[in-house]
Design a protein around this nucleic acid. Structure first.
Lengths: 193, 193
DNA sequence: CGCGGGTTTGATGATGCTCAAGCCCGGTGG
DNA sequence: CCACCGGGCTTGAGCATCATCAAACCCGCG
């Protein structure tokens, strides 16, 4: 199951790892399984791991005073999740992360993370590529959040990330887009005509 | 004027650079002055530089079909700006960047950027810190965009980034928050009571 | 003095939320 | 096998928020 990580590194560092190299990296991770609905991180706790998703789906969200959930990220295979601020500063996280499906992940502690960063140049490359992709994606998301209507945001997602629509229930898509479930329902009805 | 860069690196890499080291890095940048309203990047062009702001203020924005500007970023001293996707992929940018005040910047070409990344370890550290800060900031911005009302977003900005409110005209703040100028005006009237 | 950009103010209307009810469907227990 | 339950989705009516349009205002500057 660690092959997913290997493929990921090969792809994003544009390097084919030797078995040795890969083993050194893989050994720093621990693999773990989470059931549907199980928490990987709860608001107020410190985010102790960088999480790499091997198989499954997670959501990262905040809960406001009214108890409403706001999904910041929907994540599936080959994505990293976590609260980086909490992870590096050891501060309490404002996010919750839980499993939307049964999910297999690889976990990396801060100590191991730092060790890999200082001993494995290829890991540095991978991480910076990840940052890069992340930054582009979040930039686009901000742009769509401040400049588009609910319907446009939905159509945008449909065009650029249809996989998410099939993978997550509609109310989570709504929360992810920052609109109510009812509005998503009405938009779908309207556009499918 | 390059002292700004030096301070920045010292601060974010938590390293005090030797004069030598700093000089090697500084030499890869070219400094340039932009007048108020002057473009640093126009939609459709390739983003040829990573921009470090020494003094002044810039805005990064898109323009929609109706001709309305949507500000993705408001940037002042000691920030990096640019369209990273365009910069690394050499693809046409979807963003405009122009000067809100007369501004001094340091420019880094892709070639020099790559050279620094491979020859100056401290530069790698600085960049990853920059990515890190960036990611945290954009994450929070997304969260506020999808979960807060116009008024809450304004109050948030007032609490967390009051400097921006003094530095940029109100209509830009409005665009940055994703609301109309009139709404900002009304919110201000309401809260100052 | 008059011009012009930015801000304010008011009136109107659209977008999207809230609340509430009904529906669909898969799962569970009798 | 069927009845029931519950979660998610749909639908409708009323309402709040915020955008739009238009006019007035303010103030620095030529």
């Amino acid at each position: 199951m660690q092959e997913a990580l290997r493929d990921y590194i090969d792809k994003y560092a544009s390097v084919t790892l030797s078995d040795d190299e890969f083993e050194r990296i893989r050994d720093k991770f621990t693999s773990k399984h989470f059931r549907k609905n199980q928490f990987l991180l709860q608001e107020g706790d410190v985010c102790k791991y960088s999480i790499f998703i091997v198989k499954g789906a997670l959501r990262q969200y905040t809960v406001d005073k009214k108890g409403i959930e706001h999904i910041v990220n929907l994540c599936t295979e080959n994505w990293w999740v976590g609260d980086r601020e909490s992870f590096t500063m050891l501060s309490p996280s404002i996010y919750n992360i839980d499993a939307v499906e049964d999910t297999d992940v690889l976990l990396l502690t801060k100590a191991n993370f730092q060790e890999l960063m200082s001993t494995e140049p290829v890991f540095v490359t991978v991480l910076s590529t990840m940052d890069y992709n992340n930054q582009i994606a979040t930039q686009k998301r901000i742009n769509s959040a401040i400049s588009l209507s609910a319907e446009e945001r939905y159509l945008n997602l449909l065009a650029n990330n249809p996989a998410l629509l099939q993978r997550f229930p509609q109310n989570m898509i709504a929360s992810f887009l920052g609109v109510s479930p009812e509005t998503i329902s009405r938009i779908r009805k309207k556009v499918q005509l």
